[in-house]
């Protein structure tokens, strides 16, 4: 899922300075699960903003609403009236949600209340870790299901680098070295031979470096 983090209240006050009526809009999907932008966070952030804006000298009038999915027009429709009657929207959706709202309402200021961080999973209670950078050309089958592009700080395809010691990554010493995990996993499933081959340079064009990515399914277009 998409994992995001809340911006701080001082940051949000800076962003919303000068606004009068703001809709704080939550999203019921990924960011609800990662405790960043669901109904509960909408309520907490709204209360905090009411107090903080008063202290900052521009009392915000805040309306709260959470829709099922901000990245989908069908659901955005359900926020239409609330969006119309406010001066601006503070979206607690991911980056896709914020932009979906902004595209739908060209005349309305839409601000991001979250920092969208990564595609990841819940590792343990209240701890999320990144698993995928969405590089557009998956190589997981080569590495025992552990992604060296996401989980190695140097994105090495022919790792490990010389810095790992006692299974730890030199860049993030509290995290295991991805290459140590790949090695153990491939050993465990009897596929160590995969690591003997030299993997060629990656085509980064399938990733963000090729410009905006668009997927068109001709077979599904009418």
């Amino acid at each position: 899922m998409i994992v995001a983090e809340r911006k701080t209240i001082p940051e949000l006050i800076e962003i919303l300075k000068g606004q009068k009526k703001v809709l704080v809009l939550g999203c019921g999907t990924c960011v609800t699960v990662c405790l960043a932008g669901g109904e509960r966070e909408v309520s907490i952030i709204s209360s905090a903003l009411r107090i903080a804006s008063r202290l900052a000298g521009f009392s915000l009038q805040i309306e709260e609403l959470t829709i099922e999915r901000q990245c989908d027009n069908v659901f955005i429709e359900k926020a239409a009236e609330a969006i119309e009657r406010n001066d601006a929207v503070l979206s607690l959706g991911c980056g896709a949600g914020v932009q979906a709202i902004a595209e739908r309402y060209p005349a309305k200021p839409v601000y991001a209340g979250l920092n969208t961080a990564f595609l990841g999973i819940l590792e343990e209670r209240a701890v999320w870790t990144e698993k995928c950078v969405a590089c557009g050309a998956c190589v997981l089958h080569e590495y025992g299901g552990i992604c060296p592009i996401t989980r190695c700080a140097k994105h090495m395809l022919n790792g490990p680098c010389g810095g790992s010691r006692e299974d730890r990554c030199e860049v993030l010493p509290d995290r295991p070295c991805a290459w140590q995990l790949i090695y153990q996993r491939l050993k465990g499933i009897g596929q160590l031979d995969r690591l003997k081959q030299i993997k060629p340079p990656k085509n980064w064009n399938a990733s963000i470096h090729g410009g905006l990515r668009v997927i068109v399914r001709e077979d599904h277009r009418i």
Partner: peptide, 24 residues
């Protein structure tokens, strides 16, 4: 070489490249 990660240096906010690795 692949090089030391930028985290260890004096420009920790830099974007690393790693288009290729040392073997490439």
């Amino acid at each position: 070489l692949s090089g030391d990660h930028q985290k260890f240096g004096d420009h920790g906010k830099a974007k690393n490249v790693y288009d290729l690795d040392s073997i490439h």
